[in-house]
Design a protein around this nucleic acid. Sequence first.
DNA 1: AATATTGTTCGTAATTTTGCGAACTAAAAT
DNA 2: ATTTTAGTTCGCAAAATTACGAACAATATT
Lengths: 110, 110
Amino acid sequence: MNTTRNKDYTIDNEQLARFAKAMGHPARITILEYLSSLDCCYFGEIHNELPIAKATVSQHLKELKDAGLIQGEIETPKVKYCINKENWEKAQAYFETFFALNKEKIRCCN
Amino acid sequence: MNTTRNKDYTIDNEQLARFAKAMGHPARITILEYLSSLDCCYFGEIHNELPIAKATVSQHLKELKDAGLIQGEIETPKVKYCINKENWEKAQAYFETFFALNKEKIRCCN
DNA sequence: AATATTGTTCGTAATTTTGCGAACTAAAAT
DNA sequence: ATTTTAGTTCGCAAAATTACGAACAATATT
């Protein structure tokens, strides 16, 4: 019995879910908010904004980078982070489109 | 040694993260997209849209309900689901504000 | 050459998420 | 009084997430 599934969801829905998932933790929202308020900054400054260990901050940054929302650049011994503008705008467009869908139609059952 | 943490993140950032997390799975995006295209519908129709077992669909619906994005109403033996309009608009506003923040400022380090 | 600075990676633990089938519930239909 | 219908809840397993301290890497400074 083959229970593998194929193409369960649309690419767009998977992409939107990936962006949303990356934003699904308050630490990561805080990072994104902070980064979007600057041109860029170093790891240490981000760490200062957060109540968690540097190893954990590093992990969150990695997730944001994997989702494409931010980018990092080594400037030894520091690492400079910034918003990935292209994907940031892509994410924005995804959410906008998503919420705009059938906007006037929604009126619920009650 | 007390390692409890208090008020780590802003209420707004926690709320936005909660919305984002609820949207952080393609099945739940598909559900929301489907629901927002209708006034409302029954569990069975939602289940038909998805490639997963009904127990799993039920779980995803529970998460969306817990996040406040949808609401369910019993019409035995069926259950009617719909978007929670108030919170849906709240979520929309949260994302909009988030992405609008410093929009023109972002230009990255490169 | 040794030390300091700045982050990342590793190893680990606890918790949460995702998924399924089976059992259950509650009303409707027979 | 059974049976059917439509979902939910339970119990479980596998995988992913979150968090930390310790160890490491790579350059800069002394």
